[in-house]
Design a protein around this nucleic acid. Structure first.
Lengths: 115, 115
DNA sequence: ACAACCTTGACAAAGCCCTGGTAGGGTTGT
DNA sequence: ACAACCCTACCAGGGCTTTGTCAAGGTTGT
């Protein structure tokens, strides 16, 4: 299935399909001559992507970031630790020791040169 | 610790601290008169945030999305399922049945009105 | 009381994201 | 061989993000 056909089946313009490939979100195989070849798998990705966007107002850059999170484990660890620091309820005035400890963990993650 | 002091300690401008609050990334408590009150917890969040940005080139919107992922479980499930469809190795020409099945899972997640 | 700080709200410039279009050239099925 | 399609590379414009600045007014420590 060529890029034009894929576009007609999914509602994306060829231009956008090339853009999505550039962003690493939907990367089709190529023929020997360089033509993009979309299969069932890619079609489903494209339809799902469109649905995600309209149902949750998720941007392309957001999905790209989610991909980065899956691929770069350092980044994932740092972000997760930061999220913990953000989401934990945190008592009002006092700062319990474990909070400090959590935050230290972040600093360690973010300064790899201290090895 | 007031917004100005927090800024001096972390390198953020007061303007940016208000912006970060607006985005839900670092939300300080308030005094009865409405002044923002930054504690150790917030200072650490701010420093870590700056480090994340410069070490991994992560945008503020990216972190905001990570927060959304943590809070909205529907969104998280949909994105994770989509990621699986994207990252799985996928054999060349044929489309094994389990891929179809995976993709169906996504469609189910994205059409809640089909209940 | 007064200086120094805080509040919200608005405007604005620089820059990036998204998307379309166009130009010049290669591939393919009939 | 020809029409219809695909490729890459570039420019462009509307919209959003990021950040600063200014205005008019409230709070606070000395």
């Amino acid at each position: 299935m060529t890029i034009g056909e894929a576009g007609r089946h999914t509602g994306w313009s060829p231009r956008m399909l090339r853009y999505l490939e550039e962003e690493g979100l939907v990367v089709p195989a190529r023929t020997r001559a360089g033509y993009r070849r979309y299969g069932i798998r890619e079609l489903n990705q494209l339809r799902t992507l469109a649905a995600l966007r309209s149902a949750f107002a998720v941007g392309i850059d957001d999905l790209a970031f989610a991909l980065r999170l899956r691929r770069e484990s350092d980044l994932r660890a740092a972000v997760e630790t930061w999220l913990e620091g953000t989401t934990e309820p945190s008592s009002q005035g006092v700062t319990p020791a474990w909070v400090e400890w959590e935050q230290r963990k972040q600093e360690r993650l973010l300064t790899p040169e201290a090895a």
